[in-house]
Amino acid sequence: MTDSATRRATHTMIGIVILAVMLFPVYWMVNASLQPSGNTLTAGFLPLDPSFAGYRRALSEQGGNLVTSLIIATGTVVLSLAIAAPCAYALSQFRSRWVSIGLLAILISQMIPGIVIANALYTAYERIGLLNSIPGLILANCSNALPFAILILRSFMLSLPPSLVEAARVDGAGLFRAFVAIVLPISRNSLITAGLFSFLFSWSDFLFALTLTTKGGIRPVTLGIYQYLGTQVQNWNAVMATAVLSAIPAVVLLIAAQKYIAAGAVGGAVK
């Protein structure tokens, strides 16, 4: 063993310790969700006698809300990508002074607090009947997903050579057809990245779920957890089981699409 090999092994050990500290709350969430019902906060460090009572309760009480969240998040992905992709292409390939104006507008949009949007959308939705509706929440969630998707897609499409589309145009394809047939397939990875983030943004949304729904009816799972916290913190196992179920998309995306996620975090913020 050389010195440097020992040092690298030490670094790996330190790295594992750092990760263990940072992810302890996530472990604790899983651990607490596997406790038998009652006040589960007395849980030991290991779920030696795991019980699925919390999950049974979570699924029966929050199962519908999980489906609602899934529908809203999927809708947000579809709508925001459909709107963002052509716009990102325009902002990356068209020559116009409007391009920099558009980019400035997107950057400014990131400064606008969600509560401002909620205030205004509530009054508008109240009038046009979109309160307590899935389309209303999908639209509101696009305020998180859309600017981000445009920036991610544009930063990729900037690297496309104009000749790519020109070639198809010579063959007589219209601009839009060339976009669908050539640009979109090539942009697959960036579409996946933007789609993943749109899904996560929408799935995690709490502010719009809280403000744009009134009693009963449509209730995303984030709101379900919030109401658990307000009313029955005695049943920690059900609360934590719901939290674990709500964390699944984040975990799946992190494991299945690691490189896209890191790329998205950097691309959306800096580019």
Partner: peptide, 14 residues
């Protein structure tokens, strides 16, 4: 990256 990807309300509950 996991803590950053979790829904904020999930982190709050935990």
């Amino acid at each position: 990256l996991l803590p950053w990807l979790l829904p904020l309300i999930v982190s709050s509950a935990t």
